[in-house]
Design a protein around this nucleic acid. Structure first.
Lengths: 162, 162
DNA sequence: CAATTAATGTAATGTTATAACATCGACCCA
DNA sequence: TGGGTCGATGTTATAACATTACATTAATTG
């Protein structure tokens, strides 16, 4: 498997998403097993829905999808699963969109930098250490003890800008 | 007036907030006049409330305050004023908190980097060009045409960790 | 297999934000 | 100066996002 630490997406035309999805699910299962946490049917199904494509997904859209084969799903059903997946680093929340997206590299805990295309809505996860480190050093300089970065960049992706 | 381009807040003990507030309001009035846009009573009052302190303020808290001397204020009353102030760069929205904060340097349009103290809730606006430029160059490298940065850093401020 | 804890079900409600249409008021200009 | 225009605000309703609280079920452990 090619390293995903630099950039996940934007996807090329030949992207085999079925494969991408199955890889992510397998990886999640393995990760949870290793950590001794339970990737239940419900949680796996939510993860699968989040990974449906490379666009951020909204909680209530997930809820609607989920209801197709899980009658009786309610907001807490979805939010609990999302909380679990967030905690395990299997998905990220995009604050500026109130939406969720699959994590391109759940191997180690991290906070990515998200590139959001406002034309096609796709999101790429950049995980550039230089950016993270520059910010860490600048904030440290002024005595701020940073523990979390939220970096969301909106614009036009390579595919959409031709 | 000392340049505010590097960092606004965290406020020291001797911070004269009355003065800080009046400066910001005067600056806003001047800016709007220059641009030919109307800083109406309502908009100014909302700006004053946002500048009440150096913590982000929630829209419905503003609404409640506003109602004290503006009976009949409703959500659109507040959100319209916030939209105006955001557009004119007089305030910023903190995405990760769904809250609003006065802009430390409305002179030129910009997107700051926000340092959010999760202990005292104060927010400092860092406006470090190196960070902005590094991100701009990295994203450009991969063909992304960035037009907006959201950078929100949470942690413990110097005062709280001191 | 009983006890315990984690996960899920269920109903209600809290919080954040916008839509749609009516009215008011500032400004322009003939 | 009075009427037209457009931006601002009033008002009602509802959409969109998220959590609380408590009941029930399922997995895990001693």
């Amino acid at each position: 498997m090619v390293s995903k630490t630099v950039v996940t997406a934007f996807q090329s035309a030949g992207h085999d998403h079925q494969r991408c999805l199955e890889d992510a699910l397998a990886y999640a299962a393995e990760t949870c097993a290793r950590r001794g946490v339970r990737l239940t049917r419900l949680r796996e199904q939510v993860l699968r829905l989040v990974w449906g494509n490379h666009e951020p997904v909204k909680a209530y859209d997930l809820l609607e999808s989920l209801r197709r084969d899980h009658e009786g799903a309610a907001p807490p059903t979805v939010y609990r699963a999302l909380d679990f997946l967030l905690k395990e680093g299997l998905i990220h929340r995009i604050e500026s969109l109130n939406a969720y997206i699959g994590c391109g590299d759940p191997s180690s805990p991290h906070t990515g930098q998200f590139l959001i295309c406002r034309k096609c809505n796709s999101v790429a996860e950049l995980n550039d250490p230089e950016i993270g480190e520059l910010i860490a050093s600048k904030t440290k300089q002024i005595g701020f003890k940073m523990d979390h970065q939220t970096i969301e960049l909106s614009g036009i992706c390579p595919k959409c800008s031709g």
